[in-house]
């Protein structure tokens, strides 16, 4: 009898969280999959089951493929760079240098700023003619003014730089926390044995930071699909969809063109992609990660 009662208590304790999780996460996700097999309801015409029709549209949708590729390059551009820079900054501000509190604050500042504000700062940097970058270009090298955000070849790279600038400071905090939990005596033990800084980093520090790297890289992947605020402010996905990312495209399809059925289909693609990436990463990394 006692066991049965405890079992009920367990569920009672879980229920508030479960209720919210089901209402706002699981139910919408299932409903999205469900909606992706239906047409978009309009006016007097209710939604009707159309099977895989939305998926056929998706495969034939050139914009979808372009956006997917954009997102791929956006991920490739932001994830390794932001993690690498975060680690480098963390190592730097973890060392005994003067003014390290100031540099910690400076590195973390972009994270505290809302992405909309960050986007506005970078709009100024990128402004053709009198923006910071063009002023440097013409002032230092005598190059003509360029329109970085107006050029389909450079706009995605510009978005990547903004995302890295925003994210690296955030990831740095996790690395910094991990670094501070590593006892300094390990460094001393390595010093006594004559290990160079690089050897120590490669053989000791980096492997001990692996749990953090796993956590940070999963976050980075999710963020590479999730962070689209700056696209709204800076480019609106243009020019010619060159800076449009999957989530931004889903937003456009759902709330600009009001094709909710097709938007649901795109969302399913994104959910599947994210799940595969997260699960894959977990299995791939897990063997190499040592948890203390």
């Amino acid at each position: 009898m006692m066991h049965r009662r405890e079992w009920i208590y367990g569920w009672l304790f879980l229920s508030p969280a479960l209720l919210f999780l089901f209402t706002f996460t699981h139910y919408p996700a299932v409903k999205t999959v469900f909606s992706s097999f239906f047409s978009t309801p309009r006016g007097r015409r209710p939604e009707e089951f159309i099977g895989l029709e939305n998926y056929r549209t998706l495969i034939q949708d050139e914009v979808f493929w372009q956006v997917l590729m954009n997102n791929f390059w956006f991920a490739v551009g932001t994830i390794p760079a932001s993690i690498g820079i975060a680690l480098a900054m963390a190592l730097w501000v973890n060392s005994r240098l003067k003014g390290r509190t100031l540099s910690r604050v400076a590195f973390f500042a972009p994270t505290v700023l809302p992405l909309i504000a960050v986007a506005n700062i970078w709009m100024f940097f990128y402004t053709p003619g009198f923006g910071l970058i063009d002023q440097l270009r013409s002032g230092l090298f005598g190059l003509p003014a360029g329109n970085i955000l107006g050029n389909p070849d450079s706009v995605l790279a510009a978005m990547i730089v903004v995302a890295i600038w925003k994210e690296a400071g955030f990831f740095m905090i996790f690395y910094l926390a991990a670094l501070q939990s590593i006892p300094p005596v390990l460094r001393e033990a390595a010093d006594v044995e004559g290990a160079s800084s690089f050897y120590y980093f490669r053989k000791i520090l980096f492997p001990l930071l692996m749990p953090t790297t796993l956590f940070v890289s999963i976050n980075a992947i999710i963020n590479s699909f999730r962070l689209v605020d700056h696209i709204f402010v800076m480019t609106d996905g243009g020019p010619d969809n060159a800076s449009s990312l999957l989530l931004f495209y889903i937003y456009e399809v759902a709330f600009k063109y009001w094709q909710t059925g097709y938007a649901a289909t795109l969302t399913v693609v994104m959910l599947v992609l994210l799940s595969i990436l997260a699960i894959g990463q977990f299995f791939l990394f897990d063997r190499k990660v040592h948890y203390q």
């Binding site: 005596v185 390990l186 033990a189 044995e193 692996m210 040592h290």
Partner: peptide, 29 residues
């Protein structure tokens, strides 16, 4: 520096590298 003084040292907390095996720890130097 410590490495050039031809010394070995044992620390109070042992300072073993937690992700390395016993063999790798012993062989570190």
């Amino acid at each position: 520096p410590p490495a050039q003084r031809d010394i070995a040292m044992v620390f109070q907390s042992y300072a073993l590298f937690p992700h390395l095996t016993v063999a790798e720890n012993i062989l570190f130097g």
